[in-house]
Computed example of a mutant assay.
Amino acid sequence: MKITVIIFASFCVLLNAQEYNLAEDEFGEEYIMVPLPLRRQKRQSTYDLSHAGGLTTLKLGHTQKFLDDGINKFSLNGNLAHTFTPRSPLTLGGSLNYLHRSGSGISVGVKNTPGYGTDLGVQGKYNILKKGGATFDAVGSYSRHYGGSSGTLTPDWFAGVQLKIPF
């Protein structure tokens, strides 16, 4: 019982020690204004309009980083592509990416073109050793095409190790 009273009293003292901004609306209601930390989110949009071989293609992309605490980074990417020809479908895609400060990470992406099917891909890398500028990583990927005129294809995958030595 004494501990509860001490905790409650400490809470009341801390609550009263805080500085609050009060605001009042047109009806006389009072509100406590609590400052929130502002954090700028990094966004990047890209476009490419090209003309080659008699075909004009438009590509749009957008990347949104929604977590970057210096150790972990998460981002979402979205993109679309369209070639301006009769009956040319619009290709839509996106990915979710994670990157750790160590260089380890994973990316999951999907792309769909109506009439041609959907492509799914997963790529990952795990940093085993980093010394100086050299890195030794376990890497892997998986991709598969679903649907469309060619039907569902067998998956492509890869697993291995990678050594990078700067010169």
Rank of each mutant, 00 (worst) to 15 (best):
M1P: 03
I3H: 11
I3L: 09
T4Q: 15
T4D: 15
V5P: 02
V5Y: 09
V5L: 10
A9N: 11
C12M: 13
C12G: 11
N16G: 12
Q18W: 14
E19S: 09
N21C: 15
A23Y: 00
A23V: 03
E24K: 09
E24T: 08
E26P: 00
E26V: 01
E30F: 05
I32H: 10
M33G: 09
M33F: 08
L36W: 11
L36V: 14
P37C: 02
L38I: 12
L38Q: 10
R39S: 11
R40I: 13
Q41M: 11
K42N: 13
K42S: 10
R43K: 09
S45C: 01
Y47V: 08
L49T: 04
H51G: 08
T56D: 13
T56E: 07
T56M: 10
T56C: 12
K59T: 14
K59Y: 03
K59L: 09
G61K: 05
Q64V: 11
K65Y: 14
L67D: 13
L67C: 15
D68V: 10
D69R: 12
G70W: 02
K73F: 01
F74S: 15
S75Y: 13
G78S: 10
G78I: 07
G78F: 14
N79Y: 15
N79E: 13
H82M: 05
H82E: 07
T83H: 05
T85N: 12
T85W: 09
T85H: 08
T85F: 07
T85E: 13
R87V: 03
S88V: 00
S88I: 01
S88T: 03
P89H: 04
T91C: 09
G93E: 03
G93W: 01
G93N: 04
S95E: 08
L96S: 04
N97S: 08
N97K: 11
L99E: 04
S102F: 00
G103L: 02
S104V: 00
S104T: 02
G105N: 01
G105C: 05
S107V: 12
S107G: 08
S107D: 05
V108C: 06
G109W: 00
G109H: 01
G109A: 03
K111L: 06
K111G: 07
N112S: 10
T113E: 06
T113H: 02
Y116W: 03
T118E: 02
T118N: 04
T118V: 01
L120W: 01
G121S: 15
Q123I: 05
N127H: 01
K131M: 14
G132T: 09
G132E: 13
G133P: 04
A134P: 07
V139E: 08
G140Y: 12
S141N: 07
S141H: 03
H145M: 07
H145N: 09
Y146A: 02
Y146N: 02
G147Q: 00
S149K: 07
S149Q: 06
S150H: 11
S150M: 14
S150R: 14
G151E: 02
T152F: 11
L153A: 13
L153E: 13
T154F: 08
P155W: 02
W157H: 14
F158I: 04
A159L: 13
A159F: 14
L163I: 10
L163W: 14
I165N: 12
P166V: 06
